[in-house]
């Protein structure tokens, strides 16, 4: 059933798509984090902004990606931006929630102690709040990376210059070998990212091994992430 000859002949193309998949995902994960970090800081400093930011990001998340990818085409044409804008938009809700939760997880006594020691706000942010918020930020990075890798697959709908492994899923719907290569590749990348950031997360919070896994499983694709898989 599997045409091994096709796979052997297409090794460079498969590797090229793997690189494209990771590239698309990495750009969105970095840009999305930078934007979210700003939005999260704003939400922490000025609390009333948080429901607005989280609400808007949540609504963006409910737009099916099949539709969001295609709706930018008439406006900006087909370029790297056509993929990256939707991908970045989808990361926002995951990142913002986790970064804000990270800052919220810093105990009030710790903040008071820092204030008492004469830290300025900037110093307190850099030396106290940021390090303590890192574990939850990494949790967010883990969820966002898995979600983004899945969404890159769907960008294959935009045509043959997109999709990463998704290209193989969309190219010829009746050729099993190619579809399997695309599906297995996407799944492997997602699992790899999940495992990689999972290890990082456990390193950062060695005291709560199983709890971290449980929280991930519980919040991973919960309400906020509802529609992003589309």
């Amino acid at each position: 059933m599997i045409d091994w000859g096709w796979i052997a002949d297409h090794v460079p193309a498969i590797l090229g798509r793997a690189v494209q998949h990771l590239e698309f995902a990495a750009i969105a994960l970095v840009v999305g984090f930078a934007i979210s970090f700003g939005l999260a800081l704003l939400s922490v400093r000025y609390r009333p902004a948080y429901p607005v930011v989280a609400g808007l990001a949540g609504i963006l998340f409910t737009i099916p990606s099949l539709a969001l990818y295609s709706s930018f085409v008439p406006v900006i044409g087909l370029s790297l931006l056509t993929v990256e804008i939707p991908l970045v938009l989808y990361t926002l809700v995951i990142y913002v929630r986790n970064i804000v939760a990270g800052f919220d997880s810093v105990p009030a006594e710790v903040l008071e102690a820092a204030d008492g020691m004469g830290y300025t706000r900037m110093q307190r942010l850099r030396a106290v709040e940021l390090p303590l918020a890192v574990p939850l930020m990494v949790a967010g990075l883990r969820v966002a990376s898995v979600s983004t890798i899945g969404l890159v697959t769907i960008s294959g709908i935009l045509g043959s210059s997109f999709g990463g492994f998704g290209f193989f899923i969309f190219e010829r719907p009746n050729f099993a070998t190619e579809i399997l290569v695309g599906a297995v590749g996407s799944i492997a990348l997602a699992l790899l990212a999940d495992a990689l950031f999972g290890v990082l997360q456990r390193r950062l919070t060695p005291w709560s091994r199983l709890n971290v896994e449980l929280e991930m499983a519980k919040t991973g694709r919960s309400a906020a992430q509802a529609t992003a898989a589309v």
């Binding site: 898995v146 998704g166 579809i179 695309g182 799944i187 699992l191 991973g220 694709r221």
Partner: peptide, 26 residues
């Protein structure tokens, strides 16, 4: 079997749905 269930759930969570559809089609 808590750890097993949780880890399996996390693996399930990580599988992209389009890939899950595509992989069973053949």
């Amino acid at each position: 079997g808590q750890a097993l269930a949780i880890n399996l759930a996390n693996v399930g969570r990580a599988i992209p749905s389009l890939a899950a559809i595509a992989i069973v089609v053949p």
